Simulated assay, not measured.
Amino acid sequence: MQSPTFEISIGTNMDGMHLIAIPMEIAKPFVEKKHKRVRVVASFEDRSIEIYAALLKRNNAYFMMFGKKNQKALGIFPNDYFQLQLFEDTSKYGVAVPEEFDAVMLSDYDAYNIFEGLTDGKKRGIIYMITRYKNSQTKIDKTLLLCENLKRGIRDNKELLKPF
Rank of each mutant, 00 (worst) to 15 (best):
K92T: 13
A103P: 01
F77K: 14
D102Y: 06
S91E: 07
E100A: 15
N79Q: 15
L86P: 04
F82W: 11
F82K: 10
D89H: 00
P98Y: 12
V95S: 05
V104Q: 06
A96G: 09
F82N: 09
L86S: 03
D80H: 11
S107K: 12
D108G: 12
L84D: 04
M105R: 11
A96M: 08
P78T: 09
Q83N: 10
L106E: 14
Q83H: 11
Q85H: 05
V104G: 10
T90S: 13
E100I: 00
F87S: 07
P98E: 06
D102V: 06
L84R: 07
S91W: 03
E88I: 12
A96F: 05
G94Y: 01
L84Y: 08
T90L: 15
I76V: 15
G94E: 03
Y81F: 13
S107A: 15
V97R: 06
L84H: 05
D80T: 04
V97Y: 05
D108P: 10
G94L: 02
Q83R: 12
M105N: 08
N79A: 11
V97L: 12
E88P: 01
E88T: 15
V104L: 01
V97W: 08
T90Y: 02
A96D: 11
Y81D: 03
V95C: 05
V104C: 08
D102N: 08
L84Q: 06
G94D: 03
F77P: 00
S91N: 05
F101Y: 15
S107R: 09
D102S: 10
D80N: 15
L106A: 08
M105Y: 04
Q85C: 11
D108K: 13
D108C: 14
M105F: 08
S107N: 14
M105S: 09
T90K: 14
L106W: 11
V95D: 03
F77G: 09
E99N: 10
S91M: 05
V97D: 00
V104K: 04
I76L: 01
V104W: 01
V95R: 03
V95T: 11
